[in-house]
């Protein structure tokens, strides 16, 4: 797969939230405003890239050669959790006010299905180290796009008159479902031809 193909696939065509249904709850419902959505999106993209690289290294250098592929789940889960906490500590040291103002717990957002799911997809597909990093960044970009779109939709929905039973999480899920149908318009072959790659 070409570089552009990887970027388009993991950011738009095979979007981690709308196509794979990974990280739906934090992605669709957690960010309260666009600023928080940007922080969460950036954090997730960096974490996905690092986790994919680390996952590739552990899988291709340790687990698969030694015949311990059955240990992928616990190893990847702990790897992602450790990276999430480390990255959060770094981010907190670098910009404490920003994280406090956003009022979000980044490790809990990170240790959701999205990051671990992308690491599993990447290792099962047999990507190289550099491809794994690009897969992680692209999936993070796709995560950010959907989070930003859903935050904008939620801001409008919250001021609209809606039936009480649908208000909040149910309506956000239905909106995400309709957005998933809209994202089906992104066809990899069509986009690659459009970009001339």
């Amino acid at each position: 797969m070409s570089w552009m193909g990887i970027i388009l696939t993991f950011s738009l065509v095979d979007n981690v939230i709308l196509s794979r249904l990974l990280g739906v709850s934090p992605g669709v419902c957690a960010p309260v405003d666009m600023r928080t959505a940007r922080i969460v999106g950036l954090f997730t993209a960096v974490l996905m890239a690092l986790a994919n690289l680390a996952g590739w290294a552990v899988d291709s250098l340790v687990l698969s050669p030694l015949g311990f592929a059955f240990l992928r789940t616990p190893v990847f889960v702990l790897l992602v959790a450790g990276l999430a906490f480390g990255l959060h500590a770094l981010a907190r040291a670098a910009m404490p006010r920003l994280l406090d103002a956003a009022g979000i717990s980044l490790p809990e957002i990170a240790v959701n299905c999205a990051t671990i799911g992308v690491v599993l997809i990447s290792t099962r597909a047999g990507f190289t180290a550099s491809q794994s990093v690009v897969v992680g960044l692209s999936a993070g970009l796709g995560y950010f796009i959907v989070t930003a779109l859903m935050t904008a939709i939620r801001e409008r929905l919250d001021v609209e008159q809606t039936p009480e039973a649908l208000r909040g999480f149910p309506l956000h899920l239905i909106s995400a479902g309709l957005l998933a149908y809209a994202f089906m318009a992104f066809d990899r072959t069509f986009l690659l031809r459009l970009l001339g790659s």
């Binding site: 709308l18 999480f169 899920l173 998933a180």
Partner: peptide
Amino acid sequence: GLAGGGLICLGY
């Protein structure tokens, strides 16, 4: 049967 259908089902 598509991903969007799953989200809509869960929402309703």
